[in-house]
Amino acid sequence: MEHAQNGDAEAFGALYDRYLDTVFRYVYFRVGNRTLAEDLTQEVFLRALKRIGSLTYQGRDLGAWLVTIARNLVADHFKSGRHRLEVATADVLDTDREERGPEGSPETAVVEKITNTTLLEAVTRLNPEQRECIMLRFLHGFSVAETARAMGKNEGAIKALQYRAVRALARLLPEGFTL
């Protein structure tokens, strides 16, 4: 990391190799479209390339830092209205969601291509914050601290969010559901 800050392109390449999957996956589960996910992932790393100099070293939080960038870009994307068409095609399980903010639920688009659909379906029915918390904590394997950093919250808030999210998920999953 320090190497990357000193302009070592190869070190940045190593970071890329290590975190590409995480960033791509995060974006993909947010936008539900592979090509769009590639576009946004590209922008994430270009931005990271420019900004890495201003990053203070925080150990393994680097994944969280990249996800923060990705998160902002995804939010920009949804604000820009570029996503209308995809959401329209992804609008399957969306009928009775409680909150339908700009961060809607385009994750539903991937549901059908994926096994464990029951679980993922239940996750997509969570409200956006809870959903993001579950995805970061469990799908991406982020720690509470990393999740807090990526979501711009403190750790106590993430623990509360996580608890509520798992509780909500338990209610959403069908009776007798076992994984």
Partner: peptide
């Protein structure tokens, strides 16, 4: 449930690769 999530969610994630 939390432990199941920890096991199963990465399986879902692995199905999505660049």
């Amino acid at each position: 449930l939390g432990r199941q999530l920890r096991q199963q969610m990465p399986v879902i994630g692995d199905q999505v690769r660049p």
